[in-house]
Design a protein around this nucleic acid. Sequence first.
DNA 1: CGTCTTCTTGAGCCACTTCAAGGTAAGTGG
DNA 2: CCACTTACCTTGAAGTGGCTCAAGAAGACG
Lengths: 228, 228
Amino acid sequence: MLTQLKIGQMAQMRSGVAPKQPMTSPLALFGCAELTGAQVAFGRNAEIYGEGEDSDFVYQVISGAVRTYKVLSDGRRQITAFYLPGDMFGVEAGGEHWCSAEAIVPSNILLVRRSVLNRVIDHDGDVARRLCAHIAAELRHSQDHGLLLIKSAQERVAAFLVGMAGRARGTTSIDLPMTRQDIADYLGLTIETVSRMMTQLTESATIQIIASRRIVLRNRAALDELNH
Amino acid sequence: MLTQLKIGQMAQMRSGVAPKQPMTSPLALFGCAELTGAQVAFGRNAEIYGEGEDSDFVYQVISGAVRTYKVLSDGRRQITAFYLPGDMFGVEAGGEHWCSAEAIVPSNILLVRRSVLNRVIDHDGDVARRLCAHIAAELRHSQDHGLLLIKSAQERVAAFLVGMAGRARGTTSIDLPMTRQDIADYLGLTIETVSRMMTQLTESATIQIIASRRIVLRNRAALDELNH
DNA sequence: CGTCTTCTTGAGCCACTTCAAGGTAAGTGG
DNA sequence: CCACTTACCTTGAAGTGGCTCAAGAAGACG
């Protein structure tokens, strides 16, 4: 088990660099100027929060990438979602987090105090509605993810690639921030199977692997066909 | 594809009995007297709403049982949740439903107009908060369900039984409203595997099958051990 | 250049699926 | 009340997709 660390320490973990001084940021959640807070830098694989911890903040990715996950007692890990710049996460928790969150690559994260969010909600019905819609969107993602887990290995990898392509700016070339192990744990497969499916998709000229983390979608129709 | 049916027709579908006259009910959602509506009877396997339909209502199970599910184009079905008396469902949808819902057995369902709910939310922050908490709870369930789908067949069946036991009143004897096929589609297994795991758990004296739909938990510790 | 991490590939295996058959229970009409 | 039907559940035998184990290749970095 990892020792509980304060935010400042977490930022240093494995990153090798001193954490950015928390600074007030012009960025704000739900387009509400009040909903802002400190921006903190997290190193690669640094824990942002752990399962079971009190949820004192809500988070937004400024730069980098984040994974949220649950682990079983025997070590099996299920990654529930990846978050890219602009994405909010850790919002759904009531009292305490029921997932852990880690930075995949060095990342800048905006932390907004939950107490601030709660205060805003009380007098701003619009923010309350958007918060609710955000959680509903997370639910939708989670259910789609559940549907993904009953598909074949090739379909899962195809779905993952299409999903990532849809979120990144460039629609056909994707830069993956995560390792094959992360992808495997997200798709409920082993690292070897992910790798094999990638080569398989390459052999069928559906994708092209420029570098292991840089993928180009060559035949979008074929990928969509695998997706249904 | 099923033809779109109005509520009255749906209730008759396969049920063989005329639908109950919609009647005002003393029942109300979130303990708010305003949040009430018509109570409607649905026959076995009757569709309550379909994926893609406008979400004009929110629902609560009065009696019976409900399944929500998604289907892939090739017919594979993933049941996302079972709902028992007292449970609300179909709440998360914004514009349209992204799951279908069916009555598993003849069921009485309370239908509350979404327009009514939206109106109440605007002037009652407490109801808004509870709605949000309800959707968050659904998200939590969905993520736990995702975690379940990476486990072994025996672990999945054990988790299902423990989950059902926790929701039914009697903690050790369970009456399952759903078929083996429903359980299989919920757990991402085949009907044969579910059946085999059931007999396996019986042989290890972990459970006892009184009738195919009536299960007694004989060794709760062993089931919990499989759950972690 | 060496070390460490990450990724790929191969060979064998196993848990679950597929296919097939039979059994059980509930309902229906004669 | 009993033959017949239908839906549901169980069990067996064979097949297979993805896993495990093992080795090596390709980068990243000091």
